[in-house]
Amino acid sequence: MPPSQTVTPELRQWIIDQAGAGITAPALIAAMQESGWNEDVAVQAVEEVLRAHLDGLAQSRGLPAAVPVPEPDIADSPLCIDVGDRQVEVLMAMANPRVVLFGNLLSPEECQAIIDAARPRMARSLTVQTRTGGHEVNADRTSDGMFFQRGENEVVARLERRIARLVNWPLENGEGLQVLHYRPGAEYKPHYDYFDPGQPGTPSILQRGGQRVATLVIYLNNPAKGGGTTFPDVPLEVGPRQGNAVFFSYERPHPSTRTLHGGAPVTEGEKWIATKWLREREFI
């Protein structure tokens, strides 16, 4: 084992050079372990070095600066995360883009309680109109939806506390929980969740809590067919299974985050989901 587990400038440059030559992050970590590095130290070193390098490249290309984002505590590859009142399973994790699939975030009874509370208030879903800061009907989004106020009822407040612990982000930085209902044929075509900084309405939107920096899509039922959450740039499709949730974060409002995503058409049955968007600062 090396006399020190310190990440030296020489090691940083080696990681960058190897990555530039096409060596994958898992292969870099394996090579460091063969040289005596602790696995956790190797994983952290590769992630931090490559992220810092990519941030530098991004800024040199004139991209927006990266900001801190929510991050689940999964560096040591746990099977579950304790969120206080239940153990949430870690089913899959991807580093770039940061995508984590969780299981057992909600019980079937809690899922049904959210659906029952939302159903009487459903209306055609709107999207944020970044040209003006308002909202509009968008042909790309053919679901019905509604918003709960933060902490509006017991099950919503309980879910919000779990999410805050799960992704290590202040509860008050979350927008109100949105519930969406997709009937057969309904979909949400690929899009980004951050607000386009080039649009004139974005500054007014950001006054309420800054940029969105992460999303959690929570599946409230089991559609018979279709309705997965797709990430075309990866590519990846997450199947909608009741009680599970897919988390993804985006450190800058730019396509380089590879967080383009959509809701695939429901081909049989119906789909109910809840979406939690997380902001940089307190959402007011």
Rank of each mutant, 00 (worst) to 15 (best):
Q33D: 11
G36L: 05
T275K: 06
P200G: 10
L28W: 01
P255C: 10
N138R: 00
G198E: 14
Q87N: 06
H191I: 07
R158T: 15
D140W: 00
G228F: 05
K271F: 12
N153I: 14
P108W: 11
V217M: 15
D193K: 05
G239I: 10
V88A: 02
S256V: 14
Q44F: 05
R150P: 00
I16W: 01
L105F: 10
G228T: 06
R98Q: 10
T202F: 08
P68M: 03
A21Q: 11
E251I: 00
E172I: 10
S77R: 15
N153H: 15
E172H: 12
S35H: 12
R241K: 14
L91D: 03
A274W: 12
V128C: 02
R86H: 04
R208L: 02
R279Y: 06
S77W: 09
N221A: 06
E71T: 12
A42E: 03
M32S: 02
A118D: 08
P64C: 10
H191M: 04
P200V: 12
P265R: 12
L105A: 04
L206E: 02
V213K: 00
I205G: 01
Q18D: 00
V100K: 02
V128A: 11
P170I: 02
E109W: 06
G133A: 04
D140Y: 03
I115E: 12
E270P: 01
T257N: 08
G103A: 07
A21M: 00
V100T: 14
T202H: 09
G228Q: 09
R98G: 01
R61Y: 05
G228E: 14
E172W: 02
N222C: 11
E187L: 01
V246F: 05
A25T: 03
Q33P: 03
L126Q: 11
E39L: 12
A75C: 05
L28N: 00
A274P: 15
C111P: 02
V69T: 15
R12H: 03
V83P: 03
W277G: 13
P255W: 06
L216E: 00
A95N: 13
V99E: 05
H135F: 10
W277I: 12
